[in-house]
């Protein structure tokens, strides 16, 4: 497989940084050169957070630009809408069907847009809408929604399942390994069974 650019968009606190670390670790195991870029500090406090993971034979810039992402992994619907122009026209867009109101919406200054998922789906051909939050809640910990998303994405990368398991084991805290492996499997299964 050639180079893959994966962009992760979410809301501070949803676990996007950990997600990029699992992705990066799995990619190393698969023999790729990897670069990742993340933003810390002020932006993390409930703000819009993006991270980049680029894999390939040789990666130069760690940054993903508009029209460049092969896979856009969105943890929240509004963030999917905000960053959709980063996905390639034929890129894969995976959206967690969750709504988190930003402050301008909470205080009534702006409206949360309607029908985000249908807007995105009509704009791009490769859109997957999943309810990772519900899957995570059923597993007993909503915080693993990020690894459900990883499981879904894993299907599109061609990286072997075993390597993902290893990456999860090395990245998450020991007491959360089991639930995260389950979350990964659930996500992976959703991708296998997905029908639009």
């Amino acid at each position: 497989m050639s180079n893959i650019s994966i962009m992760i968009a979410g809301v501070g606190g949803q676990g996007t940084l950990l997600t990029s670390r699992v992705l990066g670790t799995a990619a190393i195991k698969a023999g790729y050169d990897v670069k990742m870029s993340e933003v810390h500090g002020m932006a993390q406090r409930g703000g819009s957070v993006i991270t980049y993971v680029k894999l390939g034979d040789k990666v130069d810039s760690p940054v993903i630009e508009k029209g460049e992402a092969d896979i856009l992994l969105c943890f929240e619907k509004l963030e999917a809408l905000r960053y959709i122009d980063y996905a390639r026209k034929d890129g894969i867009i995976i959206v967690n069907d969750q709504r988190i109101d930003p402050m301008p919406v909470i205080i009534g200054k702006q409206n949360y847009p309607d029908d985000i998922t249908s807007k995105i789906s009509s704009n791009n051909s490769n859109v997957y809408i999943i309810d990772a939050l519900e899957v995570a809640a059923n597993l007993g910990n909503i915080r693993v929604l990020n690894i459900v998303m990883v499981g879904f994405l894993a299907k599109s990368t061609g990286i072997k399942k075993e390597l993902w398991y290893e990456a999860i084991r090395e990245t998450v805290k020991e007491k959360f390994i089991d639930i995260n492996i389950k979350a990964f499997d659930e996500g992976y299964r959703m991708a296998e069974n997905y029908s639009r």
């Binding site: 819009s48 905000r82 930003p102 702006q110 949360y112």
Partner: peptide, 11 residues
């Protein structure tokens, strides 16, 4: 997608 996307400032 043409849309007035509300900002998400840190809070």
């Amino acid at each position: 997608v043409e849309e007035n996307v509300p900002g998400r400032p840190p809070v």
